[in-house]
Nucleic acid binder design. Structure first.
Length: 585
DNA sequence: GCCGTTTTCGGCCCGACTGTTTTCAGTCG
C-alpha cells in the first residue's frame, strides 16, 4: 500500500467515524495522521521493512501505528470494513456538499434513507428534506444549489490557470475609493500547486469604504452567484466555478488577518499553541494577553501585543519571519525556533533556463526569438533543448538535423555575445533505458536532458530500471519531469523515485523541477525528498514560446515550498559552475 | 487517538455566518 492509499484509508475511517458521531478529537487524530503520512518522503511500507518505529511519524501513536502495519500487511483495515457495512459510503460524499456536515448528513440518512448525493437531491426536490429537524425551506433550497456546484467543481484549479483570473479581480478592488490594501491570502499566497478557492483580504479606511469594497466584490462582472455576505466576510462563485472569499478588516489587524487567512491550517494551529504556551492567544485580530476566557469578546479580552504586520507577530512569538511558501506545518516553526530556516531561492537568483524548445522541434518560436527573450529576462545563459527523433510528432531531431541546427546556432551565437547558448537536446529515454541519440553525438552536446515520453504503464520494477539505466549514462546531466504527472489529468507513472534519485546522486545528474503550470514535476513533496538526498535541482520552464519562459517564477515558488536555497538550484549558479557540473568534475 | 522541560491525565485553535432556533448548533474556513 502506498502512502497515498494509507492516507485515503485513514481519512475515510475518519469520515465514517464522524458520521457515526464519534469523539471529534479522535477524528482529528486520524486526519492529522493521514495528512502527515501524505507529506512523508519515505514510504511507510519501506519504513516497516526497514524496521523503523512508525510512532516517530508525527501524529502517529501506538494505535494508528498498529493499524498502519495491518493495512500494509493485509491491504485492508478491519475496523474500517466493519464500519463501512453500517454506514453507506455515499454519505461521505453527501458530507462534502457545501452546507452539509456529518450531523446533517447523518440525520438525512437515518430519517429519510438518504445515502448518496443523488438521493439527497431527490429528497430536496420533493420537499421532504425541509421536514427534518435542523433543515428548513431555506436550507433545502441552498442545498439544491450546492449540489449543482459540487458536481461542477469537484477538482481544485491549477495555480497557473487562475493567476490570470485573480489578478484583475484584485486590481479592480484596489481601485475602490478608500481601499487601502487588497491582498490575496490562502493557498494561493502559499503558492500551492492547486487551489480550491481564493481568499482575499482588504483594508478599508472607513465603514463606508468597507461597504463599497464588499459591494464592488459582489457585483464584479465575473460573479455568477453571491454565496453569502456579512460585515466582515462575503463570498461569491465566479462564472468559471471558482469560489472567492473576501474579508474586510481594519488596518490595525492587517498582519494578524493576513497571517491567519494565509494559513496553512496546521501552521496556524502551531502558532496558536505557541501563543497559548506563553499565556497569550492569537486570533485574526491580533496576538492578545490572556488565553481568551470564555464569554469575553475577542477585542476586549486583553492587551493587544501585536497585530499590524506578520513580522510583528512572529517576532513577539520569538520567531523570525516565515515565508508564506513554507507555512505548511512541515517543521518550519521548529526550524524557525532553532534559527535553521533556509534562505530561500528567489527569482532574482536565477541566471538561466536549461530547458526550452524552438521551431526546430515542437516549439513555436525561433531560436533567435527565444534567445532575445532570455536576454530580456537578464539571463547569463540558456540551453536550447529540442526533442530527439523518437518523438516524431514533434519533429524531433536526429543526428543529421542536429548538425544543421548547430550551423544556425553558431551564427546566432556569433551575433549575440551577450548570452551563452548551450547546445542541448531533450533526449528520449527509450523503452529499454537506452537513449535516443548515438554516444558520439551525446558527447558533442554541452548539456544532455533525458525524459520519459512513452511506455508510461510499465511495471514499477521495469520503469525504475529503465530510468536508472538512463541516468547512469555518463553523458546525462538532467532528468526532466521525473514522474511524468500532468496536474489534474494524469498521475505519474509507477516508479521507485528513491532508487532513481540515488542513481542520480551517484552519477551527478540533476533532477528537474519542470515549471510548466501543467506539470510542476517534481512536486514540492518529491523535491523535499530530492533535497534531503543532496541532489542538484534544475528549474526548467520547458518553454515552447517566448511567453512560457515566464513560468520560471512559478517554478521558483515551488522550489521555495521545498525549502530550496540558491545553492541547491543548478540554474542559480554561475556559468562556470554550471559547466563544471555538466562536465561531472 | 495523540501528546507532554510546568502534565502519563486532561487537555486538544478560534471566530463568523446561516438557518434554525427562542438561546444555539452546525458548518466553514
Amino acid at each position: 500500500m502506498t502512502n497515498a492509499e494509507l492516507a485515503r484509508h485513514l481519512d475515510l475511517f475518519a469520515d465514517l467515524q464522524e458520521l457515526a458521531g464519534e469523539n471529534r478529537f479522535r477524528i482529528r487524530a486520524y486526519r492529522t495522521a493521514a495528512a502527515n503520512i501524505l507529506e512523508l518522503s519515505d514510504q511507510v511500507e519501506s519504513l516497516i521493512a526497514g524496521g523503523a518505529d512508525l510512532e516517530e511519524i508525527p501524529g502517529v501513536g501506538k494505535d494508528i501505528a498498529e493499524k498502519l502495519e495491518v493495512m500494509v500487511r493485509t491491504g485492508e483495515l478491519p475496523q474500517l470494513t466493519e464500519l463501512s457495512q453500517k454506514i453507506p459510503l455515499g454519505l461521505t460524499e453527501v458530507m462534502r456538499v457545501k452546507g452539509i456536515g456529518p450531523k446533517l448528513a447523518s440525520a438525512a440518512w437515518t430519517e429519510l434513507g438518504v445515502d448518496s448525493v443523488d438521493a439527497l437531491e431527490k429528497a430536496a426536490q420533493e420537499g421532504r428534506l425541509s421536514e427534518l429537524p435542523g433543515f428548513g425551506p431555506k436550507r433545502q433550497a441552498s442545498i439544491l444549489k450546492s449540489i449543482e456546484a459540487h458536481r461542477r467543481n469537484v477538482e481544485r484549479a491549477r495555480l497557473g490557470e487562475i493567476d490570470p483570473i485573480v489578478r484583475p479581480l484584485v486590481e479592480s478592488l484596489r481601485q475602490v475609493p478608500g481601499a487601502e490594501r487588497v491582498e490575496v491570502a490562502g493557498s494561493y499566497r502559499r503558492r500551492r500547486e492547486t487551489v480550491g478557492d481564493i481568499d482575499l483580504l482588504a483594508i478599508a479606511d472607513s465603514h463606508k469604504a468597507a461597504a463599497a469594497i464588499s459591494q464592488a466584490f459582489t457585483t464584479y462582472p465575473d460573479v455568477d452567484e453571491v454565496l453569502g455576505s456579512g460585515d466582515t466576510r462575503s463570498s461569491v462563485r465566479l462564472k468559471n466555478g471558482l469560489e472567492v472569499d473576501l474579508r474586510v478588516m481594519e488596518a490595525e489587524s492587517f498582519g494578524a488577518a493576513l497571517l491567519y487567512f494565509t494559513g496553512s491550517k496546521s501552521h496556524n494551529v502551531e502558532l496558536r499553541q505557541l501563543a497559548l504556551d506563553k499565556g497569550w492567544h492569537l486570533t485574526e485580530y491580533g496576538l492578545f494577553e490572556g488565553t481568551g476566557e470564555e464569554g469575553e469578546s475577542p477585542l476586549s479580552s486583553g492587551k493587544r501585543l501585536a497585530s499590524k504586520t506578520e513580522e510583528d507577530i512572529y517576532a513577539k512569538l520569538g520567531l523570525p519571519y516565515i515565508e508564506p511558501e513554507m507555512r505548511e506545518g512541515r517543521g518550519e516553526i521548529k526550524a524557525a525556533q532553532e534559527g535553521e530556516l533556509p534562505v530561500l531561492v528567489e527569482l532574482a537568483d536565477i541566471r538561466g533556463d536549461l530547458h526550452m524548445h524552438s521551431t526546430w522541434s515542437d516549439g513555436r518560436a525561433s531560436i533567435e526569438d527565444m534567445m532575445r527573450a532570455c536576454m530580456e529576462r537578464g539571463y547569463e545563459y540558456m540551453a536550447l533543448t529540442d526533442h530527439s527523433k523518437a518523438l516524431a510528432m514533434t519533429g524531433g531531431l536526429d543526428e543529421e538535423k542536429l548538425a544543421r541546427q548547430w550551423e544556425e546556432l553558431d551564427e546566432i551565437t556569433a551575433a549575440n555575445p551577450g548570452i551563452t547558448l548551450l547546445r542541448g537536446l531533450e533526449v528520449d529515454i527509450l523503452k529499454d533505458g537506452t537513449l535516443d541519440l548515438s554516444d558520439e553525438w551525446l558527447e558533442k552536446l554541452d548539456i544532455v536532458l533525458v525524459s520519459v515520453h512513452s511506455h508510461f504503464s510499465l511495471p514499477i520494477e521495469e520503469q525504475t530500471a529503465r530510468m536508472v539505466k538512463a541516468v547512469s549514462h555518463p553523458q546525462v546531466n538532467i532528468l526532466c519531469h521525473p514522474t511524468g504527472r500532468i496536474l489534474g489529468a494524469r498521475e505519474g507513472y509507477a516508479v521507485d523515485l528513491a532508487e532513481v534519485f540515488e542513481a542520480c546522486r551517484e552519477n551527478q545528474v540533476a533532477v528537474e523541477l519542470n515549471a510548466s503550470y501543467q506539470r510542476l514535476d517534481l512536486s514540492d513533496v518529491n523535491l523535499i525528498a530530492a533535497r534531503k538526498r543532496g541532489l542538484m535541482v534544475s528549474i526548467g520552464t520547458d518553454a515552447h514560446n517566448e511567453k512560457e519562459l515566464a513560468g520560471m517564477e512559478l517554478g521558483v515558488q515551488q522550489a521555495r515550498r521545498a525549502w530550496l536555497s540558491k545553492e541547491q538550484v543548478l540554474n542559480a549558479r554561475e556559468l562556470a559552475e554550471v559547466r563544471k557540473f555538466l562536465a561531472k568534475k
